[in-house]
Design a protein around this nucleic acid. Structure first.
Lengths: 163, 163
DNA sequence: TGTGAAACCAGGAAGAT
DNA sequence: ATCTTCCTGGTTTCACA
């Protein structure tokens, strides 16, 4: 995406740090923390968005609050060679898949899945397994988190039902 | 944290959706999108932060841009019973661990690890394996992402070196 | 990069529904 | 109660130096 090194100095790093800590911090405040004017900070942020260093600003939400109470990792095994392009298509058909990647090891891909509950998860799993060239899946359910679950939280679709 | 169900209506859902799409959207703009005044939107956002529905606002950053070019999942197997409390302590000792959870299946825990490169990852792995009651680890390296890697991006520590 | 100006926004007070 | 309107100080964003 950016073959060019895209100059990225300590000032940029400090600005990014500030925005990761609180994406709603005003440019003026960031500026006085790093020693720039608000305008200069804005210009740097705009540039970092253009070059793809910063991809967006998002609210981090407790998934449980939105009704996503079940979380699992699913290893996917494909028939024959698994073309990543085709896999990517498949993955986009299932909104419950919040992350997906090709990996080393026995499996072809690893999916991160969020569902309302175990019933919903089972339905998602069945739906995934009917996809053409998926041979088998192995699911690992998440029991509890050992870290404050920083971002990585958001099922970008916000809401099923909350009782 | 929230013993009370914390009423959460469609308006709240829309507000959260707007903030997840762009955490820097002004309250006024959100208000005109959902049919409320800016003040009303702010109050609802404040309440959602208090009740823990919204845990923060953060910039999403391409990890590669910050020098994290290697990513892996590490299954952890412990000696005997693995007390989650102790595991959580261990996990916090290694800043490269960006997510950690207890899971079903053969392993006791699953770690998400980011490192600068494979050398760095190897060092992290060795460091983890010297922890007292960790018996063995199985690593799965991430090759490529099949989804735009929404959040879940951030190693909350921003920077090693960018060549 | 910084400065200045105009438009816009945040956040509180007071009042209407 | 919760929403709205109004108001003041701060913020964003532009053109220009």
């Amino acid at each position: 995406m950016n073959s060019r090194p895209a100059p990225f100095d300590d000032l940029d790093r400090k600005i990014v740090t500030a925005l990761m800590a609180n994406a709603r911090t005003s440019f003026a405040e960031i500026g006085s923390a790093v020693g720039l004017s608000a305008t200069a900070v804005k210009r740097r942020v705009d540039r970092m968005r253009e070059t793809g260093v910063i991809t967006g600003f998002t609210a981090t939400v407790t998934p449980e609050a939105l009704g996503w109470r079940t979380e699992a990792y699913v290893e996917v095994y494909c028939e024959g060679a698994a073309p990543p392009r085709r896999l990517a298509e498949v993955v986009r058909n299932h909104p419950e898949i919040t992350a997906a990647m090709t990996v080393t090891g026995g499996a072809d891909a690893l999916l991160h899945v969020r569902a309302r509950d175990v019933d919903h998860f089972e339905a998602v799993l069945e739906r995934i397994r009917t996809e053409p060239f998926i041979r088998k899946t192995i699911s690992v359910m998440v029991l509890s988190h050992l870290l404050p679950e920083s971002p990585e939280a958001g099922a970008s679709q916000p809401a099923p039902d909350v009782r």
